[in-house]
Structure formats: C-alpha cells, structure tokens
Design a protein around this nucleic acid. Structure first.
Length: 821
RNA sequence: GCGAGAGUGGCGGAACUGGCAGACGCGCUAGAUUUAGGAUCUAGUGUCCUUCGGACUUGGGGGUUCGAAUCCCCCCUCUCGCACCA
C-alpha cells in the first residue's frame, strides 16, 4: 500500500533536518568552484512575503540548488534591508517603535523564508538596521567623505510632501514620488551628496565586462546620458559677464540667431534690462508655478521672453538677443543654449513663434537654397555661410570650430552627462544617521571612526512633520565637537536606504566581524557575485549605486575588483487573470492559502512552470493542481517501483525510456542554466509520462532492473532543485543516504539520444503530404527515392516533373514539382 | 513623440541558428475503476468542410524562399523605458 504524499509533514521534517545538520553552511575557504548566488535581499516593510518575493526567491533557489548539485560551492545568503520609509510608516501606523516592529516583522519573514525551503546559509544573515551593520554604513560614508566623494551643498532638492523628505533624482518618476506617488516639489535645502558623477565614465565602461540584460544596460547608459560636445563662451554686450553654453553641434555656430537661458539661470537677474523687468519677472513666476511634469512635456508649446540684452557670437562677432525660455533646463549642461533654429527642431519652433531669424548653415549637398525650411535640418552635411569653414564637411567642422574657439580662448571640448550627484540625505528617523558634527569654530567635522556607530536615539518624536525626527532628541543633537570640545550639534538627517544596500553583498561574507566592514581578501576571492537576481525596477537606482560603491572602494584600495554583479537576471511580473496584481483590483494571490493546501514544493514549482522567468507569468488558481498532480504521480510511481523491485531485463521498451531520460537530462540542464524553468519542468513531465507508460505496459516481473537502480534515482535528482523537500523525502524512502543535495547532477550521454530511425515529413511544394520512417544512416539520395516511392506521394507526383529535391537531416524531405511541359 | 520588447488553440505557454506549429500543463469530451469523488488511469481535443481525405491557421496586409511564428516592408494593439538632454 503506497502511503499518501503529505506535503506539510514532509516539509517541516526536512527543514528541521537541514537546519540541524547545517547542510547549507558554505565553506568560504573552499574557493575552487565557488559560486556566489545572490538574490536582492528583502525589504521587511510590514507585510508578509507576497507572491513577488516568492517569485524572486524560489526560482533563484532552484537555480542555486542545481548549481550545488553540479558541484559548485554555492554561497546563497539572505538578509534584511530593514531601514527605510515604509518600515517607518508602518510603525507609525501601528503606534510602535520602528525598531520593535521591524524586529517583529523580520521574525515572521524569517520563518516564512524557511518554510519556502531555500538553502540560505543562515549563519550569514544580516540586518541593515542593526548598529553592527550601520556602524559600517557610517564608516563607508566617512571613507567617501575623506576621499572627497561626499559633500554638502545647498541645492534645489526634490521634496515629497507626503514622505516629508527629499528624494534622489532616481526616486522621482515623471514628477511624482516613486514610493507614494505624491507630486514632488522643489525646495532649496542643504543636503549631502555622493559624487557619483565622478564615476560616470567608469560606470559606462564597466558595462562591457558584465553580462546583464541589454535593456538594463541601456537604461543605465541613458540615465548617465553621456554627450560629447563643446562649451562656447558668449560675451554679453556692455557687461563683463560671459554666457557659457554647451553644444554638441559647434559646427552650427554660424547659424546662431539668439541665445536662450533657463529662467532660473543665475545671470538672468543681472542681464534683464529695466524696461523688460516686469515682463521677465512675470514669466519666471509663471514658469515656477508650472509643475515639472507639464513644463518638460514635449507637447507643450514653447514660450519665452526677450530680456533686453545681447551677447556676441565669438566666431562672427554678431550680436544676438538673449531670451529666457522654460524649454531650457537649468539642470542640464550650463543652463544656457545657443539657438540654431535652422538645425534644431526646438529652436526652430521657438523662432517661428517669436519671428526670430532662421539661418541655414548646414546644407545636405553643399548648395545653398532659398527655400524656407518647414522643419529644422538636424542631419550632418556641408557647412555654408560659415566664414572660413564654408565648404567643410560638418562632421569635420565640429573639430575645426572647436579648435578655432580654443585658440581664441572662448571655447573648449566638453563631455557632458545627464547623471547628477546622488542626494543621500533623508529627513526621516528610520535610517543610518549621517556621522557628521557641526561646530561653530571647526565647521563640518566627521565623527571619528572610533566613535562609531552614531546610534539612532530611541527617545525621539518620529511622527512629527517637516523636520528631521532626530532634531527632537537633545541628547542626540548636542555633542561636544570632536576637534575642539566646544558645544556642537550633530547632523540630524539620516541616509537614504540605498546606501545600506550598496555594499551589503560585501558584508554577507563576514557578517559578524567586529573590526571591519568586510574582509578584503574574502571579498576579493568571492566577488563579483556570479549570479544576481532581482527586480528590473532597480536598474538606475540600486544597481547603479552598488556599482559606484564598488568602484569607489576599489579606488580606496579596500577591494580589488571592478564590478559587483557579473551576471544579472530580472524576474518578470506575475499577473492574475491577465491583470497586474493589486490590492485595489482585489486580485492579489496570497501564497499562504496555496501552501497550506498543496505545500511549498508545489507552490514554488508552479511559479516556475507558469512562464518564462524573465517574462513573468499568469497565475491561475486551477493551474496549480497540474503541478500537484504531477508531484503525486511521481510519488506513486517511485514508491511503486521501489516496492515491486523490478529485476527483469526487458530491453526494447526500456530503451525508449532511457532515451527519454537522456533527453530530459540534457534539456533540463540546459534550460535550468538559462533560467528557463518552465520548459525544464516540461522535460521532466515527459520523462514521467514515459516511465508511467512503461510500468503499465510491461509486466512487473519483466521490467528492467535499471528502472530501480538508475532511472528513478536520476528522476529524483532532476526534480530535487524544484521540489527540494519532496525529493529529499523520496530519496530517503528508496533507501538512499542523506542528502540528495550532496548528489551529483546527472549527465546525459549524447550517444543514447541517437535513434535508429527517424520519422521525416515529406513536403511537396512546401506542404506536408506524407511521412516516412528512415534509418539514420541512409544517404540523402536514397531518402529522396524512398519518399518518391511512398504510395501517397506517388499520387502527387504522378505526371509531374521534379524540379528540386532536398533533404533536411532528420527533419524532412522537400520536393518541388511542376506540371509536365 | 522617440526607443526596446511582445502579440501563437477555450486558457497558461512551447518551437535554440528559417525545416513536420501548438511540446508540457490547465480546461473540456468520452470511457475504465470506485460506495462516492474535485482521487486515479486510458483515449480524444486548433478551426472549418459531408467523408476516405482535404482546406485554412501564429494581430492585419504585402514580400523574400523549395519552405516563414521565425527574415524584410507597411499597419494595428499591448507592455516597459525615455520624454524639450541643447
């Protein structure tokens, strides 16, 4: 009598055994075949594990287990990105201290993660909100500070009125807060920045040495936004001032007919003529009122005003009027643009509206034409009406003009980036305090490393609004200056949580060391992370910041590699009945209910079966039973064969089963490698179907003994990464030694895949008309003959001439026929 | 608006470099077994045509090819990213 498959019981049993035997403890000293498999650690904001977490973690764990069985020394850690706004907001909502609620949530989540059955090495767990961790986040801040990569400045910052804090550029999506979707305002504030812009070029270069999705790389490239061009200085008439512009088209300099400054440009105030003052002020006021999103919309008609002053074009000494317009952004380039309406569509539209001259200086063929342009000609061509440069190819003209400007001291080559420095100050409580003290005498003083950590005070009013909660703790704020000992005050802002997660992959290796943030030699040995898995939404935030950190730390001599993550895979999104899951739609799938009903093994396996991992899939409450049935089917077959102990020697039918096994091993392995879990599972299903047919059709006493000895063990090895508890249980039940995860992943034998005959389709004029069974060693000419001798085919080719006949090996025969002339 | 990806049965999805479209699973139909089953097993299941058999089928339209889901051109829809970046 075959016992029932009791998932809950089995899963508990093995989770316990794995833990007590420390099966997944990784020996970091063993570097041969090391493999660092990392999944983005969890953000414990208050909710339990949702389906997205499962989809991130379970398949990655399957991959890691597969690699372990292939003989790799796999390090797969898990921890908590525990600081941050959602956790703080959750605590406020529940009326408890964030430290308390975070700790509680982590305890729940840890149990859930364990119930998933992943092979995390729990000895390496980290929690970024613990002083043991954030002490080193602060230490890293100081290293950046010491090396000139952390600085404070007053700047217009993105302010989220709901979150009551500033945000980094990366956290503002279309003018709205990435987290809470409130409209983001601008506020002038003193803020801390990390000088990520210094690494712009290196961040671009590094893309060449990592295997990441094309799309993610291009998003980063786009975000960094490199453009090569020149700066050009325009003297202002009757003023000492120079207006500097950045342009990628110095070859169009002779076509400049006006100058445009951003309304916020510092020179606007000074250069506005008295008679224009009222008009200009009104325009600036109006531009300010416009929401960022409206102002930057390309749909919006361009507007601007003339401020009354003129500047001089350095190549032809022509005076051109200076305008301000909100299509020029103060944050990009120099905040000023030389307008060339004939060769820039935006300038063209503006010039048309305000009747400014449009002067053609680039011609497609070098010839002048009197026709009016209907739109700007933005391509390259031949320079015309450009003084000594006329007749020159515009691509060469770029260099020639810049050389001329440089010689005359009014221009230079310049590479410009869109990337801005990373604003890391947050006016919130639940984060790592910035380790800086302000002293009236000594100014900005870094907290000495020996005084770290700067502990988050407990007695804080963190529910307040508009001011950093740390300001409400006098014990925290008032400190003696570390330099002169006089009364001073601490920085009251905390760091963006992305700072914590920019180096966690280093800490994971040695989470408990007390005297260093990380161990240089262990990091050098284990990094870069071999396989990183996480959401695509981090493309220009976490993934860019972490790369910046690694490059900076490398330059400080603390590590000796260039990139944190060698291979990167993003999981797709799970939908439910075709729609994105959301609380408002009410179609959120709660994993717990399904795990209770079918077990974690079925649940995780079904997620992998739904679709291609990187594309996500559509959840179906019905579909999951397919996997449940499949596991129970294996359960019965394995135990039945184990009981009946086949000892026969039946060979003909068995050969087919073996062939199917090698086919399954081959494809299952290849697909797992590429994170194609769904097709990988399909191959195992086919194998099970074949075994099932065999034991039904071949009498028990004849069944091949290898069924028990070779086939079933291999089947269990194949299923083990997908359904770990299930496979471990059956492995034990068939009398094998613990653990199946110390077993070697099966390898296929290519020679076993070769069939004696193949069935080939016969195509006539592109349409399949018949099938023939052909032995593999038959040559093409004979195959064609066989095809033409086929009864069915004869009907088609009777009375026709064969124009062409070809054989596609093992696939088909193609005949092209034509009526007899 | 620009850029990238996608569109395949009733459903989720396969098809690696052009080579028998629809693997695998869900659902459905019939049968077997069972006291019963939402358990299990077997067979069937793209659409249309009256059949042996045939015709049509990968968002729509054209093209290249002996042969196209796959390559090329035009159009439609969806998803994601960027959005005056000078």
């Amino acid at each position: 009598m075959i016992p029932e498959y009791k998932a809950a019981e089995i899963e508990k049993k093995w989770q316990k055994k794995w833990e007590t035997t420390k099966l997944y403890r990784c020996n970091l000293q063993d570097l041969e075949r090391k493999l660092y498999c990392l999944v983005m650690f969890i953000y414990p904001s208050g909710d339990k594990l949702h389906i997205g977490h499962w989809y991130n973690y379970a398949p990655t764990d399957t991959w890691a287990r597969f690699k372990r069985m292939q003989g790799f020394n796999v390090f797969e850690p898990m921890g908590y990105d525990a600081f941050g706004l959602p956790a703080e907001n959750y605590a406020i909502k529940m009326g408890v201290h964030p430290a308390e609620s975070t700790e509680k949530n982590i305890n729940v989540i840890r149990e859930q993660l364990k119930a998933m059955g992943a092979m995390y090495d729990w000895d390496h767990e980290i929690n970024t909100s613990r002083p043991e961790y954030y002490q080193w986040t602060q230490w890293l801040f100081l290293q950046l500070y010491k090396n000139g990569l952390a600085y404070r400045k007053k700047a217009a910052a993105n302010w989220c009125p709901t979150c009551q804090t500033v945000l980094a550029n990366e956290q503002v999506v279309d003018g709205y807060c990435e987290r809470c979707e409130s409209e983001v305002l601008t506020r002038d504030l003193e803020q801390w920045f990390f000088r990520i812009t210094r690494y712009a070029e290196q961040l671009l270069d590094g893309h060449n040495q990592i295997q990441w999705p094309e799309k993610t790389i291009s998003m980063q490239k786009n975000w960094i936004g490199k453009s090569i061009g020149a700066t050009i200085d325009f003297k202002v008439v009757d003023h000492e001032d120079l207006i500097q512009v950045f342009t990628t088209r110095p070859d169009t300099l002779f076509g400049v007919t006006y100058m445009v400054l951003a309304p916020e440009h510092p020179l606007v105030e000074k250069l506005t003529r008295p008679e224009k003052r009222a008009e200009v002020d009104a325009y600036i006021l109006q531009a300010r009122k416009l929401r960022e999103i409206d102002r930057t919309s390309t749909e919006k008609e361009k507007t601007g005003v003339f401020i009354g002053s003129y500047c001089v074009n350095p190549v032809n000494k022509e005076q051109v009027p200076i305008w301000i317009a909100d299509y020029v952004l103060v944050t990009y380039g120099t905040g000023a643009v030389m307008a060339v309406p004939a060769h820039d569509q935006r300038d063209f539209e503006f010039a048309q509206k305000y009747h400014l001259p449009i002067r053609k200086v680039i011609s497609p063929n070098g010839e002048k034409s009197e026709d009016d342009l209907t739109q700007a000609f933005e391509e390259t061509g031949v320079m015309i009406d450009s003084g000594q440069f006329s007749g020159m190819e515009s691509t060469k003209g770029i260099d020639a003009v810049v050389d001329y400007l440089w010689e005359n001291g009014c221009g230079d080559r310049r590479v410009n980036y869109k990337l801005r420095d990373w604003l890391i100050s947050r006016q919130r409580y639940w984060g790592a305090p910035i380790p800086i003290i302000y002293c009236e005498g000594c100014g900005e003083v870094p907290v000495p490393e020996s005084d770290l950590p700067v502990l988050l005070p407990e007695n804080v009013e963190f529910k307040g609004k508009g001011i950093s909660p740390l300001a409400t703790s006098p014990d925290f704020v008032d400190v003696p200056c570390p330099k002169c000992g006089k009364p001073a005050r601490r920085e009251i802002d905390t760091m963006d949580t992305f700072v914590c997660s920019s180096w966690y992959f280093l800490r994971f290796l040695t989470p408990k060391i007390k005297d260093r943030a990380f161990d240089t030699s262990i990091c050098d040995a284990w990094l870069p992370v071999d396989q990183y898995v996480g959401g695509a939404e981090h493309a220009v935030m976490h993934l860019l910041y972490a790369r910046f950190f690694v490059k900076a730390l490398r330059d400080f001599g603390l590590i000796h590699f260039d990139e944190p993550f060698q291979r990167l895979v993003h999981q797709g999104t799970i939908t439910n009945k075709g729609a994105k899951m959301s609380k408002s739609r009410g179609n959120v799938v709660n994993p717990d209910a399904f795990i209770e009903k079918y077990g974690a093994d079925t649940f995780r396996m079904y997620m992998m079966f739904m679709g291609a991992y990187e594309e996500g899939g559509d959840w179906s409450d019905e579909g999951i039973v397919g996997i449940y049935r499949f596991l129970r089917r294996i359960w019965r077959i394995v135990l039945q064969i184990h009981e009946s102990k086949p000892c026969g020697a039946e060979g003909t039918r068995y050969k087919k089963v073996v062939q199917q096994m090698h086919y399954a091993i081959k494809n299952c392995t290849g697909d797992l490698e590429r994170f194609h879990f769904n097709t990988s599972i399909s191959r195992i299903m086919e194998l099970v179907n074949e075994i099932s047919l065999y034991i039904q059709n071949v009498p028990a006493n004849e069944q091949n003994r290898n069924l028990n000895e070779e086939l079933i063990p291999n089947l269990l090895r194949l299923i083990a990464p997908f359904a770990p508890h299930f496979a471990e249980e059956l492995w034990e039940r068939i009398g094998k030694t613990y653990s199946i995860f110390d077993q070697k992943w099966p390898e296929h034998d290519e020679s076993q895949l070769i069939k004696e005959t193949t069935s080939m389709g016969i195509q006539i004029n592109g349409k399949i008309r018949g099938q023939i069974e052909v032995a593999v060693d038959v040559n093409d000419a004979d195959i064609i003959k066989m095809a033409m001798d086929d009864e069915k085919i004869k009907q088609y080719i009777k009375g026709k001439t064969i124009q062409k006949a070809l054989v596609v090996k093992n696939k088909l025969v193609s005949l092209v026929i034509k009526d007899m002339p």
